[in-house]
């Protein structure tokens, strides 16, 4: 059983990472995460929107309504400065976490996954 805090942290990392490429609406965020993880990570409404609203409340993302050419309104999310600042250490934490697991289990080597590169702390 995965610790809920770990799961929540991974969901936050996934959303912030996808948004680092540019502003997206909820459906597109979910679609890209699913596509880029080969379907391993999939968000339903109940897991995506509470997370987006929390990130917005925490000031890590901002949202604006936009109207498409067909007249449909969509709420687009983008990373704020605080969100970008949060993403770098979050990535580092997860890199360290997976590195530690890998060293412990040898799982990455057995699967032929290259060992994570330790980022230097300047």
């Amino acid at each position: 059983m995965i610790d809920p805090n770990l799961k929540r942290g991974s969901a936050e990392l996934a959303v912030l990472s996808v948004l680092s490429a540019g502003a997206l609406h909820g459906y597109e965020i979910a679609r890209r995460i699913k596509e880029q993880t080969g379907g391993v990570l999939a968000f339903d409404l109940a897991s995506l929107y509470p997370l987006l609203y929390r990130l917005e409340k925490d000031g890590l993302v901002s949202a604006e309504w936009e109207e498409s050419s067909s007249g449909r309104k969509r709420r687009c999310y983008q990373l704020t400065g605080a969100g970008r600042a949060r993403l770098a250490p979050l990535r580092q934490q997860w890199r360290e976490f997976f590195g530690a697991l890998d060293r412990l289990t040898g799982f990455g080597q057995a699967m032929g996954i290259p060992a994570p590169v330790e980022a230097s702390h300047g």
Binding site: D44, A46, S47, Y49, P50, L51, R54
Partner: peptide, 17 residues
């Protein structure tokens, strides 16, 4: 069906906001 559990969604939005 994909939308998931509506009660969980409701609680999640309430908690988040």
């Amino acid at each position: 069906a994909w939308a998931g559990d509506w009660k969980r969604l409701e609680r999640g939005i309430e908690d988040a906001r």
